[in-house]
Design a binder for these strands. Structure first.
Lengths: 317, 317
DNA sequence: AAACACATGTCTACCTTTTGTCAACATTTT
DNA sequence: AAAATGTTGACAAAAGGTAGACATGTGTTT
């Protein structure tokens, strides 16, 4: 029974991120949803109602006016939202060579609030901000426009010395937990291509690899996230054992050149036929190495979906 | 006889986290459960009653009103919760029909099933087992009698070479996520003593520190989990900044003697008045150092609550 | 450009229902 | 005797509801 009216006001506010006021006024003015009532006049919403309110919330966050979109059907809302998602922008950008990063004020303010929470070591607020961001802008934009920027900014501030090490640790830990819960274990169809995401030996920072795994998941891939610091042989072994279509590696530390290059070449040699995607803050330092070994360099997380679809399509030849 | 009524009020409050008052009023107003009575009118609950109360507790925490959900069946409650709890998301993809009350709820068998799941790289089953274990035996025993033994066993098998590195990584990652979720749920009362949990510089394995943090939380402490690999100065700084009543450190790698000892002594010198608890697989190797610096050695996680209560009580003098 | 109307989220005032907690007192268990 | 448990009634805070005002944009008209 997906359409039974069972959910109270509170649940709806939690799940949609809208306030009671807004929900009521949307009902009153635009008939956005039509909840049932208990015999004591409390509203009761269905799963579908919640879904619809969530869509409306996202659409309004993207700038559409509620009055205009309230009469639309759920499907119309979905296409409306997808047209403005960063992924769609990127794929369209292929046709028109003008990939202007859309000024995403919502995401920017969200990032700012998260950074504030980090600076004041308030992990509860940080978690809540992240959850709100997911509700407000969906998973893709959460990953590419909120969490990725946050981690970059934290990295910069760390190397500038603007951020205490303890803050950085706390933030990383909270974000690790948050991403872990998002990382629902692959519900992708059986035939979906498999991506192995991890970090080479000596590289302990795992957020990048987790982001890569999640991005691939929402691009429809099956992913295997293996945690950080995995020796080359193990990476290769896992990739073969699960017949992966690609391997994603995240590199954060620039130091340790010899070990890292060795590991990368080992992986490449063990997996000559499998595309290797390499990203992370320190990956830029290894651009020549990456090119030399025929791997792909992930310049931005937002570009990863495109790279993945290239891989799947080229496989057909 | 899984349905015999032989649990007293006290164990029910401990297992469910509900107060006596709440449990009674849920029974009176909503017939949430119907315990039997002793001949002297004391309530007696069954395992099923406890599970039901736990489900109700989780559902109310998610925003559902008790009056509406109290009439639901256990199965309905499960689906209600499973739809959207962060923990349940982890296993959602697994779409296996809900296991009909695990036949064997002893800690040993649970550990065994988890180890099997690890060996077959089945992260879905692993999380499901952990969730079931939490329901069946409560958070404390989950930590001390399931997860702690699992990690020890995994460590042993890793050093024996019985377990592939990839398996160990996958298991660690899944458990890390699981513990992280438990951790974020819990927020403590204002006046509670504060524990800072982390891992010294060079020590990257964080599960031990997370377990310590969670154990302290369920002993009523406020905890600050800082992630692994934190330099001594930062640990001391965080402890002072949050006026911690204790600091817990987890040590896994035996190597690196010089660095580790240096770090430990630095911490001790910076925090002369704050009790230091040190545990983890490699802590035994440092017993003499630990004694020398006046720190406390956590031989087993199960002993930690007692150590914590010693600290709080000795503070009154 | 100024004036105006409309759109929209937020807020206040005030009422009802729901729900957790508590006090007071009795009984049983340890 | 002290701790734990039970019953009852009362209470306060939380959650929900309606109605209407208000501030702020945004677009249209003059």
């Amino acid at each position: 029974m997906p359409n039974e009216k069972n959910y109270t006001m509170k649940v709806v506010t939690q799940r949609t991120g809208l306030t009671q006021h807004t929900i009521r006024v949307w009902e009153k003015r635009y008939d956005a949803v039509t909840p049932e009532r208990t015999h004591t006049n409390r509203r009761l919403y269905s799963e579908d109602d919640i879904e619809r309110l969530l869509l409306l919330h996202r659409a309004t966050t993207q700038g559409h006016s509620i009055g205009r979109i309230a009469p639309l059907s759920d499907d119309e809302l979905k296409t409306l939202i997808n047209e403005h998602s960063p992924l769609a922008v990127l794929t369209k950008a292929n046709a028109t060579p003008l990939p202007i990063t859309p000024p995403d004020t919502t995401a920017e303010s969200s990032v700012q609030r998260c950074l504030n929470a980090i600076a004041s070591m308030d992990s509860n607020t940080l978690t809540r901000e992240l959850m709100d961001a997911e509700i407000a802008m969906g998973r893709n934009r959460l990953l590419t426009s909120v969490i990725d920027p946050i981690m970059n900014r934290v990295g910069e501030m760390w190397s500038e010395g603007t951020l205490r090490v303890a803050d950085e640790h706390l933030a990383t830990s909270v974000i690790r937990t948050f991403l872990g819960t998002l990382h629902s274990n692959n519900r992708a169809p059986q035939g979906a291509p498999v991506l192995v995401a991890t970090t080479p030996a000596g590289q302990w920072h795992e957020i990048g690899a987790l982001l890569a795994s999640l991005t691939a998941q929402s691009a429809g891939w099956n992913t295997l996230y293996m945690g950080p610091n995995l020796p080359a042989e193990e990476i290769a072994g896992a990739a073969i054992a699960h017949s992966a279509s690609a391997v994603a590696l995240s590199i954060i530390y620039p130091g340790d050149d010899s070990l890292l290059s060795t590991e990368l070449f080992k992986i490449q040699r063990a997996l000559p036929a499998i595309p290797l995607l390499i990203g992370g803050r320190a990956a830029a330092h290894y651009k020549s190495t990456i090119n030399e070994m025929g791997a792909m360099y992930i310049e931005q997380l937002a570009l990863m979906p495109e790279m993945l679809s290239e891989i799947t399509s080229s496989n057909f030849y």
